[in-house]
């Protein structure tokens, strides 16, 4: 038996909107630790890793580890029917073939339940080794989204370079080139507007903007995004989910042929 009650149901709505276009089908894993998902996009270029820790739920019951295969587009459709202030409860029986999403309005005057069929999904879990990153950039998530969107109107790839001068996002296309440099900025009044650059070694890597733009659909989840870079490693674009966990996107770099 599985029963997870999330007072801030909008978090789950936002998570689904962030990943549904990148991943079609995925297994949600439930354990005592929490509700998690790891899935690759269909091209096997990017990896999504979600964790919602059990402590973040108002009620968390998971009698035994359960893996539930879901079509994320269908799950997103159902969660879209929840109000932004609704409490969302996810329910499933051990060995059952469906999952129920229950939506309660804040004053309990409307209760809805949506049942969705589960599916068998063959997916292998990848081991993500702990890594020391050469550069970690923390910046406003909306700024990161803006940069990726702007650059994708000029080119298809972005070169992200971190030096002691700052972080540079560059692209080139048929019409010309673009460079956007951000410097560390900790002197802002609000911490969510800060840009913090931690650099061990200068690093420069090239990524497909199509994927970066897809990751930025998670912008509503967090005011800040963390971009971790190391040569020879996928970039990690991380959105923290308040008090609960994270949504991380890993993207393999492009290399010169």
């Amino acid at each position: 038996m599985l029963e997870l009650r999330l007072v801030q149901g909008s978090l789950l709505k936002k998570v689904m909107e962030s990943i549904k276009d990148l991943v079609n089908d995925a297994n949600f894993d439930c354990s005592a630790t929490g509700f998690s998902l790891q899935a690759m996009d269909s091209s096997h270029v990017a990896l999504v890793s979600l964790l919602l820790r059990s402590e973040g739920f108002e009620h968390y019951r998971c009698d035994r580890n359960l893996s539930m295969g879901m079509n994320l587009g269908n799950m997103a459709k159902m969660l879209k029917c929840a109000g932004n202030d609704d409490i969302v409860t996810v329910k499933a029986d051990d060995g059952g073939d469906c999952v129920t999403f229950m939506f309660e309005s804040p004053n309990q005057d409307k209760i809805a339940d949506f049942e969705m069929k589960l599916m068998d999904i063959d997916s292998e879990h990848l081991g993500i080794p702990e890594a020391e990153y050469e550069a970690i950039v923390r910046m406003p998530s909306a700024e990161f989204a803006r940069i990726c969107k702007d650059l994708s109107t000029i080119g298809d790839t972005v070169v992200i370079s971190v030096t002691k001068e700052g972080v540079k996002f560059s692209t080139r296309g048929d019409i010309g080139t673009a460079n956007i440099v951000l410097r560390q900025n900790t002197s802002v009044d609000k911490p969510e507007e800060a840009t913090i650059i931690e650099m061990e070694t200068p690093v420069s890597l090239t990524f497909a903007l199509r994927y970066m733009n897809s990751f930025t659909k998670a912008t509503p989840l967090a005011s800040q995004v963390t971009v971790s870079l190391s040569s020879e490693l996928p970039v990690v674009v991380e959105y923290k989910i308040a008090e609960m966990g994270y949504l991380r996107f890993y993207l393999a770099p492009k290399i010169e042929e």
Partner: peptide, 14 residues
């Protein structure tokens, strides 16, 4: 010419 690498090149199945 640039080549897109696969994620499996970096992360092995558990």
């Amino acid at each position: 010419k640039q080549k897109q690498q696969a994620i499996s090149r970096f992360f092995a199945p558990k």
